[in-house]
Design a protein around this nucleic acid. Structure first.
Length: 509
RNA sequence: GGGGCCGUAGCUCAGUGGUUAGAGCAGAGGACUCAUAAUCCUUCGGUCGUGGGUUCGAUCCCCACCGGCCCUACCA
């Protein structure tokens, strides 16, 4: 049994869920749904990151306990994901007891292995940022963000001996060329390692909202060292080995490009230090940009649009869940930055969904109704359309398995185009009712059946509705990718002529 | 400051050391009328950021520059 374990980063609860979070999570979800469809046993993990000073402060400001605050803010992500049909198998919160247990077990192991030592952490600290800066990052000796003086701070912390892992990491990269994709991101990670790694402070004494260090009750783990471990918490690390054995070798982390260093350098080093294999694969994605602006809250944003303040629910309300999912998956190649715009969503919606897919389903249903008494027939075994379908299905499959939803959908839409073209060249609406028109429509219906299966990862609700309309029983999600083979449409079923799947959005107003 | 990524048709992007650089959308023309003024066919359109270099030959390799961006101890 093949397995597929996919994760998103856990999102910081102080942020409201926004389009950037949705982009990552929808991609992970589509990949998870594809692998389930393809017969893999699949485990899809997401969650929220809930420790750290900023969370503690926000809770205080809202006159709540940190736990109550995070209960509330974490829920916003679950709500957002419900609205986007995210099929996560587990939702982890770093404040859960199971997570503290795992973090402690994992870091205790690294400590026992001799890779953690006590040192003094000093640095230049900006009170406004609550953050440290290296001297080079300062502007005229002041904080680059606030332009205010920084203070020299020092505290005794526990350090992780990252410097000891440079060679091992490079070797790991060499032996696992697919560890980080795409290649450009892999190169970034490798060149960072080649520059030389410094030990890093992994604990803090100045706050209490964190996971306690098991061998030093005065300290808690710094949030990143707590957060990364979530990928193991969900596999019962430290409790039992069975889930680790099953899933960890098939792990895929989907992350944004800004956290490459944590996932592609620190995290594999920590795993090595703890005596486990690094994750199997880190897939890096880019950012959605609007007018060249990053989708982020920290943008100074002089008059710029801040898409980070657009809630996914607002877009779902306007365009629907499946169209938004489709747009996020189709518009941008995973790994590249992409443009985000309302105009872009509308363009995808109107051309791909309304004109191509929706209209195909509508015109086929109309002709079957008027010329075939509403009953579809089974397709012939071989034809030009069958040949295209077979090769496009293979192309889409290859794209999905290589983390390229954009290419997969592009291939899927070429098949939709082939069906529209097929109808044009045969003009069944000119034919008299009979075997000839039934045969033409049977091929079109077969393509629609295949497409319904192919879009399950991207648009699960639409897939099911199309499935129903061509008279298929049961749930399309229970099909397998293998059932996209030509010839599966049984014939003899009533085809349903329904409302437009995707009513065109008028923009001329 | 250091490291890295990117800059290809109006727009969004593919792409390769070698005859005429591709796709989708937008635009133009035609066909059709089953369908959501949808669809199908054809077509216009690029000195591949700038300047050098390597090469028989570069959009693709090297260097510099310009422009956009990411990382440089907690927001995809």
């Amino acid at each position: 049994m093949a397995r597929f374990y996919i994760t998103t980063p856990i999102f910081y609860v102080n942020d409201a869920p926004h389009v950037g979070h949705a982009y990552c999570t929808v991609n992970a979800d589509a990949l998870a749904r594809f692998h389930r469809l393809d017969g893999d046993e699949t485990f899809f993990l997401t969650g929220t990151d809930e420790h750290g000073q900023k969370v503690a402060d926000a809770a205080e400001k809202n006159d709540m306990s940190p736990q109550a605050w995070t209960d509330q803010t974490s829920q916003r992500f679950r709500d957002a994901w419900d609205g986007l049909d995210i099929s996560y198998d587990d939702f982890i919160r770093t404040t859960e007891p199971r997570h503290a247990t795992t973090v402690q077990a994992f870091l205790q192991k690294i400590y026992d292995n001799g890779f953690i030592y006590k040192g003094t952490y000093e640095g230049l600290y900006c009170v406004s940022c609550e953050d440290y800066f290296v001297a080079d990052a300062l502007v005229d000796g002041n904080c680059p963000v606030h332009g205010r003086p920084v203070t020299h701070m020092a505290e005794e912390n526990w350090f992780f001996r990252l410097s000891a892992f440079g060679d091992q990491l490079l070797e790991y990269y060499q032996q696992h060329p697919q560890f980080t994709t795409p290649d450009t991101k892999r190169n970034e990670a490798v060149s960072f390692i080649r520059e030389g790694l410094k030990d890093i402070s992994i604990t803090r004494t100045s706050l209490s909202w964190g996971v306690p260090v098991p061998w030093d009750s005065e300290q808690v783990f710094y949030v990143w060292y707590d957060a990364l471990v979530n990928y193991l918490t969900a596999l019962d690390y430290g409790q039992s080995t069975s889930r680790m054995d099953e899933w960890w070798p098939r792990s895929h982390h989907l992350i944004g490009k800004e956290i490459i260093r944590f996932h592609c350098v620190w995290w594999p080093a920590m795993c090595l230090a703890a005596g486990i294999e690094p994750p199997a694969h880190v897939q890096v994605h880019g950012w959605l940009l609007v007018g060249g602006q990053k989708l982020s809250k920290t943008m100074a944003g002089e008059g710029s649009v801040r898409l980070s303040e657009i809630a996914p629910s607002a877009l779902v309300g306007e365009f629907g869940t499946d169209p938004l999912r489709y747009y996020l998956l189709r518009e941008t190649a995973l790994g590249n930055d992409g443009d985000f715009s309302i105009e872009g969503i509308i363009a995808r919606y109107n051309t791909d969904l309304a004109n191509n897919l929706g209209n195909l389903v509508a015109r086929v249903a109309a002709v079957v109704t008027s010329k075939c008494d509403g009953i579809g027939a089974a397709p012939v075994a071989t034809s030009a359309l069958a040949t295209s379908a077979t090769s496009l299905v293979a192309e889409a499959h290859d794209a999905w398995t290589t983390f390229a939803p954009q290419r997969a959908l592009e291939a899927t839409w070429r098949l939709i185009g082939a069906a529209n073209s097929h109808l044009e060249s045969h003009a069944p609406w000119k034919m008299e009712p009979g075997a000839e028109v039934a045969a033409v429509m049977a091929e079109a219906l077969e393509v629609i059946r295949i497409v319904a299966i192919m879009i399950v990862p991207a648009m699960p609700t639409t897939a099911q509705e199309i499935w129903r309309r061509i008279g298929m029983a049961g749930s399309v999600a229970d099909e397998t990718w293998g059932s996209t083979s030509w010839g599966g449409y049984p014939g003899g079923h009533a085809v349903i002529k329904g409302e437009a799947l995707f009513p065109r959005i008028r923009t001329d107003a």
